[in-house]
Amino acid sequence: MRGRPAPRVAVITGASAGVGRATARLLARRGMRIALLARGGAGLRGAAEDVRAGGGVALPIETDVSEYAQVEAAAERATSELGPIDLWINDAFASVFAPFGEIGPEEFRRVTEVCYLGYVYGTRVALDRMRTRRAGTIVQVGSALAYRSIPLQSAYCGAKHAIVGFTEALRCELLHDRSPVRVTMVHLPAVNTPQFDWVLSRLRNRARPVPPIYQPEIAARAIVYAADHPGRREYWVGASTVGTILANRCVPGLLDRYLARAGYSGQQTAQSADRDRPANLWHPVDDGSGADPGAHGSFDAHARTRSPLLWLSRYRGPLAAGLLSAGTVAGVLLRTARRHRR
């Protein structure tokens, strides 16, 4: 009798919290060997415990993805201790919530280095190893903001747009080379992660995700599904994501004016911001004696646990998902027009 195949090896950046943490838990159920890359020690320890409890093998590696040498060293260690890398998931990010004029040049550079160059570096070290073996999958965790930017997040939106441009160029090169390595993108809606409790913010009130909000497990399921089916260029999670993107393509000027009116208040709660709370732009808030942030943020009461679009795309094909998205687009256009007339 043949033995069971050895567990596959995955690397997840931004694995200590939020979507990366939820994805690690899901992959652990498959008995996978997972290298967990992040800066925060407490979150990494918690993520490693989650993976082991789920039946996987964990290798936590403190890594700043904005430093290519650290990403290369992490990939080398993962290969040496876990085996050849089959799956690389780029998910690490940082951001600043503020009008563009209130973001310092060094802060803008830092966001770009983490959110964009971190993906470039991760993709590079993964490809260097996957091309040699002629096997492997890379998943870029993107955002609806890669196609429809919003105010107060110019650095983050710019980085997400850049990831799309970079990935599309790379995909063409892989096709030209007839490479079996696959790269795909998963664009997420607003997700209930700890980021809103630690992101650097200069807003008057506490930052919040723009509804509808989804739980990180929804995003994790989409990422794992994309890893299993990397033949598609990209996956969109949440009908609202598709609707917003298509509405932007249909009536961009109208959406610009609507976001200029509603985009500021829509990203803030009624609660005043705590100016003294720590932020993780330069240093992780869960370093040293910091608390493990986990996967969920502070908006459990408002977050959805299901995504009809994701379910339809998986089990009923793209046609049904397209019909749902078309209905969402119509709703977004109608609501936007009504609010603009007020």
Rank of each mutant, 00 (worst) to 15 (best):
V224Q: 04
L281F: 07
R39N: 10
T123F: 04
W236R: 06
F108W: 14
L281H: 02
M130N: 02
A69H: 11
G122E: 06
T244D: 08
V329G: 03
A159S: 05
L170S: 03
G158K: 11
E76Y: 13
T167P: 02
T305L: 13
A15N: 13
A78N: 08
D177K: 07
N248E: 12
P60Y: 08
Q268L: 04
G31I: 09
R342H: 08
I34Q: 08
G55D: 01
I61K: 13
A17Y: 12
G263I: 07
I223G: 09
R124C: 11
G238W: 00
D64Q: 14
A159W: 03
A337Y: 12
D292T: 11
A69Y: 08
C115P: 07
T112C: 09
P216M: 06
W198F: 15
T63K: 10
T269G: 01
L319I: 04
G55N: 10
R30V: 10
I150N: 04
A219N: 11
R124V: 13
A273Q: 05
I218L: 05
I103M: 14
L26C: 13
R2G: 13
F108V: 14
P216Q: 10
R134N: 02
A38H: 14
V285S: 04
P308N: 07
E113F: 09
A320N: 06
